[in-house]
């Protein structure tokens, strides 16, 4: 995945079953963002892999004041890349472990 300067990681062990998963997002490289992020804390949130889209969460983070409106696409892409990796892993690894 492209380095957006925004890091998104799993905030919990993925058991491969739950649709809702905890993620943690923080800014690694503020220079890659158009606006100045509110602070460089790690933002933890739950994401429903089946019902929600990264764009929804990114917009809510902008509305909450964490990021500038101009960075909503970068934040959404960062979340989307991590969600895609989680779903990739679930499709390939978990069936073998069942």
């Amino acid at each position: 995945a492209e380095d957006t300067g925004v890091r998104v990681e799993l905030a919990e062990e993925d058991d491969g079953r739950k649709s809702s998963i905890a993620l943690r997002l923080w800014v690694e490289d503020p220079k890659k963002l158009k606006g100045k992020p509110k602070d460089n804390g790690a933002i933890e949130f739950t994401f429903d892999l089946e019902k929600e889209t990264p764009d929804d969460v990114a917009q809510e983070m902008v509305d909450a004041g964490f990021f500038h409106e101009n960075d909503v696409k970068i934040v959404a892409k960062s979340i989307r890349d991590r969600v895609a990796l989680i779903q990739w892993r679930r499709e390939r690894i978990w069936p073998m472990l069942q």
Partner: peptide, 27 residues
Amino acid sequence: NSLTQVVHSAGRRFIVSPVPESRLREQ
């Protein structure tokens, strides 16, 4: 924990805590 802050937006809860130094890329 005084370093953790909870923010609600559009019904979603965001928990903000300091990023461990080890995870911040050297500027």
